[in-house]
Amino acid sequence: MRRRSALLWAAALGALLLPLAVDSPYVLHIAIVTGIYIVLVQSLNLVLGYCGLLSLASPAFFGVGAYVATLLALRQGWDSTATLAMAMLAGIFSALVVGFPSLRVSRHSFVIVTLSATLLLQLVALNWEEMTRGSLGLANIPAPRLFGMTVRTRIEWYYLSAAAAAIAVFCTWLLVSSRFGRAMIATRDDEQLALACGIDVFRTRLVAFCLSGGLAAVAGSLYAHFISYIDPGVFGFSVSETLLIMVILGGSGTLWGPVAGAVVFTALPEMLRLTPEIRSLLYGVILLSLVLYRPRRLFP
């Protein structure tokens, strides 16, 4: 345990000093993306890891966050502090709308209903052209302005993304170590028993799902500002795929496992760029071997 916390402190210190050690914009770029993914994995971890519900709706809230923040920044010229808050609210609200019906069905059906919700939202983004410009997408998303500071350079971006990741991990920790967190875990481990203990299973799951939606939306708005262009592709299944890999192989239902998963599975596809032609094939092979030989989690 002591070795583990020493390792964590070392990792945190390393993360803090990273921009001083490397000057490659590419490495920083990957690090920034990793930070955004850490926010996302914690969002999925809340639902999958602590409530035991396999949700494919992460891209839905990610996309909602991206669009809300982008539209408010582009059309209304809002400050990013405000757009981020609005994106988060929109994420929570859409999670409420999706979760209210889908959390009533069985765990298996939940997988498919959340996937359908994502694809429906994608259709809305494609067809509501007056608002979203449909498939033409929204370009020139401005650099974020937070508390009067504009985040422009990659180093500034790195610290923004690292801060977001740290806050996401901290909030997850606060939540799961609270009374409510224990209720979440109880609903995951034994639904009947949780009911018998007087836990409102549906309400517990709904609240967790909404918080997860809020986190995903924050990640979405950061992504939109960082890449500076979004189109309905942000609702695509590929985000779900990556997240599932990160959370499950990292160790779902643990605080740091998914974080490690996010680091490894953002870096791995980039490292495989060494062999562009067979990169995806290798990725599949590595993934399969991990599932077969290290099915629980990557790290002890």
Binding site: P25, Y26, Y223, I230, G233, G236, R273
Partner: peptide, 14 residues
């Protein structure tokens, strides 16, 4: 995909 396009460009450039 835009995000992968940007990552590719960053890799090729730096």
């Amino acid at each position: 995909r835009p995000a992968d396009g940007v990552a590719s460009a960053e890799k090729l450039l730096s």
